[in-house]
Amino acid sequence: MTVLLVALGAAIGAPLRYLTDRLVQSRHDSVFPWGTLAVNLAGSFILGLLAGLPVGAAWSALLGTGFCGALTTYSTFSYEILRLIQDGSRFYALAGIIASVVGGLGAGAMGLLVAQAVTG
Rank of each mutant, 00 (worst) to 15 (best):
S44I: 05
H28F: 15
G43D: 03
V39F: 12
H28Q: 11
Y18L: 06
T20R: 06
L41A: 10
D21N: 13
F32S: 07
L23C: 01
L23N: 07
V24P: 01
V24S: 02
F32H: 07
Y18S: 06
P33E: 11
G35N: 04
F32D: 08
A42V: 10
D29M: 04
I46H: 04
N40M: 11
D21R: 15
N40I: 04
L16S: 03
F32R: 08
V39T: 09
H28W: 15
R22G: 01
L41I: 05
G35R: 04
R27W: 09
D29E: 14
H28G: 01
N40D: 11
F45I: 01
H28C: 13
L16M: 13
S26N: 15
G35Q: 03
L41K: 03
L23F: 12
S30L: 12
W34G: 07
V39R: 11
L41W: 12
R27A: 13
G35V: 03
F45Q: 00
G43I: 01
R22F: 10
D21A: 11
T36H: 08
R17S: 06
P33R: 06
G43K: 00
S30Q: 09
A38N: 06
A42Q: 00
V24W: 08
Y18N: 02
R27M: 14
Y18I: 02
G43Q: 08
S30K: 03
G43N: 09
H28S: 13
L37I: 11
P33H: 12
P15V: 04
